Simulated assay, not measured.
Amino acid sequence: MLIKNNCPYTVWAAASPGGGKRLDQGQTWQITAASGTTQARIWARTKCNFDASGKGSCETGDCGGVLECKGYGKAPNTLAEYAIDQYEHQDFIDISNIDGFNVPMEFSSNSPGCTRVIKCTADIVGQCPNELKVPGGCNGPCPVFNTEEHCCNSGNCGPTNFSRFFKERCPDAYSYPKDDPTSLFTCPTGTNYKVIFCP
């Protein structure tokens, strides 16, 4: 999996599994995902400050105050999510705004047998509803309100006005937990992927 920063600013890429790495504009980072990997995600952290031992913090996407992420990042963060070699040797890939949005993103493959491009590049931070605005990002409604309606812990929910705000701007990305039909994509296992910040 190739991760590339095309943003005109530095991002601190994060991957679970994978860790983390500072990427200045144009820099890349290669990570590998083992067959059977599930619930994996890649995201960008912004405005980070780490000391020589790799401790510090980020304005968005912070993962426990360390450069080398061990767990998931703090909302808001635009997520590239994937699972490798699942049912019938398929990979499942998606972009999610359920945890909000911080950096425009592309998650794509250009392998024989699977050319798929998922993008979320709208000005979500600039247009963010007041209730969801935070410095550097636009929170998802679940992290803000923590209600069944927005978080869907029971697995039985529909879109809300807030989730529609994200869906209208990024139709290929998850806007609420039950958004699978328009947001989850498959490729054959063995496909090569890339995640681009600010495509």
Rank of each mutant, 00 (worst) to 15 (best):
L2K: 15
I3E: 02
C7D: 05
Y9V: 02
A13L: 14
A13V: 07
S16M: 11
P17N: 06
R22E: 14
L23M: 11
D24M: 10
T28L: 11
T28Y: 05
Q30P: 04
I31Y: 03
T32R: 08
T32N: 09
A34R: 15
S35K: 11
T37C: 03
A40F: 04
R41V: 00
R45F: 07
T46E: 02
K47L: 01
K47E: 01
K47N: 14
F50W: 08
D51N: 14
D51A: 08
A52E: 07
K55I: 06
K55D: 04
S57G: 14
C58Y: 05
G61I: 00
D62P: 06
D62V: 03
G65D: 10
L67S: 02
E68H: 11
E68C: 03
G71N: 07
Y72I: 05
A75C: 08
L79A: 00
Y82A: 00
D85H: 08
F92H: 10
N97L: 15
V103I: 10
V103F: 06
V103D: 02
P104W: 02
S109I: 01
N110Y: 08
G113L: 13
C114L: 11
V117F: 12
C120N: 09
T121H: 09
D123L: 03
I124Y: 02
P129K: 13
N130H: 11
E131T: 15
P135D: 07
G140Y: 03
N146G: 08
N146A: 10
H150L: 05
C151P: 05
C151I: 11
G158H: 11
N161S: 13
R164Y: 09
R164M: 11
F165H: 10
K167T: 05
R169H: 08
P171S: 12
P171C: 01
A173H: 01
S175E: 01
Y176W: 10
K178V: 15
D180Y: 14
F185H: 14
T186W: 05
C187L: 13
T189M: 04
G190R: 09
Y193T: 00
V195C: 03
V195L: 04
C198W: 10
